[in-house]
Design a protein around this nucleic acid. Structure first.
Length: 400
RNA sequence: GGUGAGUUACUCAAGCGGCCAACGAGGGCAGACUGUAAAUCUGCUGACUAUGUCUUCGAAGGUUCGAAUCCUUCACUCACCA
């Protein structure tokens, strides 16, 4: 009974599972005998900020922690220096060791907003990969043929398209797989884009005769705010978990209706039954899609803050966009008398250049104290003004 | 190592001596319509107090009144050959 509950929770939203039976047995054994098992999850500390895309995986791991998982949080400090080629259409530049280590620190701080630190062990793969040495590395490479390596989707594409693939990129999956050998993981979690690498771990565990073959559970890749490409920092379509509450709220509300259901499925903790009901109600017109989205935004915001802060973010949002009020916490600047408006807009950081400012004024996108302006040559005289560009960029200036 | 092709703005991609701050597409920004949704329509999309000036077409030189366009060298990428 409890096992079924556990498996239902574990299965929610997943993309693919390899060796489901094994996972079920591990959980069953835990429930019966209290025996723990290890779950590996790898993070590449290439970006120091976690976003909602990462939390899809983290939440799944948190579920495992309820059912006897001892989590091996692997910081790929060694492999990050190579750079994972996954999903990249071009060679990725590698990071220096210092940057990697610095990133991994802030990673850990953020990860424990979701994971239970008591049941998590943080490990660095440089621990064993540094020690592997050239001979160990060569040994590892003999276990896998190039032709199989080229089967990997992105390698295949790049190879056919005549783009360069460096040898070090071949090493990446091997080393990541080798981590599983060292950690003797029972299960490894990752995104679907990691399938090849995850399977490599399973394969290598077998090749090295560890007596284990990790089960694999893959989560779908969360689309970013654009709803098309995967959420990532470099594409700028992300919601960071350390962002201010009002930004998280506003960003969730800006996603498309279609994407909202995806976020519900992967990020909300509401039951699937509830979500199906929302969906139906929206379809038959009894629930406005905006309301459904507001609920989602509140829930997600509250996860990283709390319910009252989330509510505050909502009110702030409604004030600004429904009632056209000015946000309460806009930045203030002191500016000298007689400053050219375009210059002022650049100085307070809501326009990138005076050229852009001119264009926006021409298009009626710039407002002073709520009134559209059209004279791009005007100067600001003494007083206090609210400058606004578009719908969401504000600044308060005091001209002296 | 040899031969050939290529390197253009955020991305893709035209241009191959002046009409080029550089066609087009995507993206982005802004406006209209809305629910800061989608779809759609429109404008903008190097910088500069600006009917002009300046810096951009891999890098550095050169030819020319004039170069993204021609020449030389260098760097990088790709293909075929070895």
């Amino acid at each position: 009974m409890i096992l079924k509950e556990a498996m239902d929770e574990i299965s929610r939203g997943i993309a693919e599972i390899i060796d489901r039976e094994k996972i079920e047995n591990l959980i069953k054994t835990y429930l019966q005998e209290g025996k723990e098992y290890s779950v590996k999850i790898g993070f590449d500390p290439t970006a120091a900020d976690l976003h909602l895309g990462h939390t899809v995986l983290l939440q799944k791991i948190a579920s495992f922690q309820k059912y006897g998982a001892k989590v091996q949080l692997l910081i790929g400090d060694f492999t990050a220096m190579i750079g994972d080629p996954t999903g990249k259409s071009e060679t990725r530049k590698s990071l220096t060791r210092e940057v990697v280590l610095e990133n991994s620190k802030s990673y850990q701080e953020q990860v424990f907003k979701i994971l239970d630190p008591e049941k998590t062990e943080v490990v660095f793969n440089s621990t064993w990969l540094d020690a592997l040495g050239a001979s160990g590395l060569v040994g590892l490479t003999t276990l896998f043929p190039v032709a199989r390596m080229l089967e990997r989707d992105d390698f295949e594409k790049r190879y056919k398209a005549g783009q360069s693939i460096s040898i070090s990129e071949f090493l990446y999956p091997l080393l990541q797989g080798y981590d599983s050998v060292e950690l003797k993981s029972d299960i490894e979690l990752g995104g679907t884009d990691q399938k090849f690498n995850l399977l490599m771990g399973r394969q290598l565990q077998r090749s090295y005769g560890t007596g284990k073959e990790q089960a694999i559970l893959m989560m779908p890749i969360l689309e970013g705010l654009d709803g098309v490409q995967k959420m990532s920092k470099s594409l700028g379509n992300f919601i960071g978990i350390t962002e201010p509450a009002k930004d998280i709220y506003a960003k969730v509300l800006s996603i498309s209706d279609e994407l909202m259901w995806r976020y519900y499925e992967l990020l909300s903790q509401k039951s699937l039954v509830d979500i199906a009901e929302f969906k139906e109600n929206v379809a038959n017109g009894t629930l406005h899609p905006k309301s459904a989205k507001e609920n989602l935004a509140l829930e997600i915001t509250a996860r990283f803050y709390d319910a009252s802060i989330a509510q505050g973010a909502k009110e702030e949002f409604d004030n600004v966009f429904k009632s056209n009020l000015i946000p309460s916490d806009i930045k203030e600047f002191d500016i000298e008398d007689g400053v050219w408006i375009c210059k002022a807009l650049v100085d307070v950081g809501i326009e990138p250049s005076t050229s852009q400012a001119r264009r926006d004024i021409k298009q009626g996108a710039v407002r002073i104290d709520q009134d559209k302006i059209s004279d791009e040559k005007m100067n600001l005289s003494v007083g206090e003004y609210i400058l606004q560009v578009g719908k969401r960029k504000f600044a308060k200036v005091r001209v002296k």
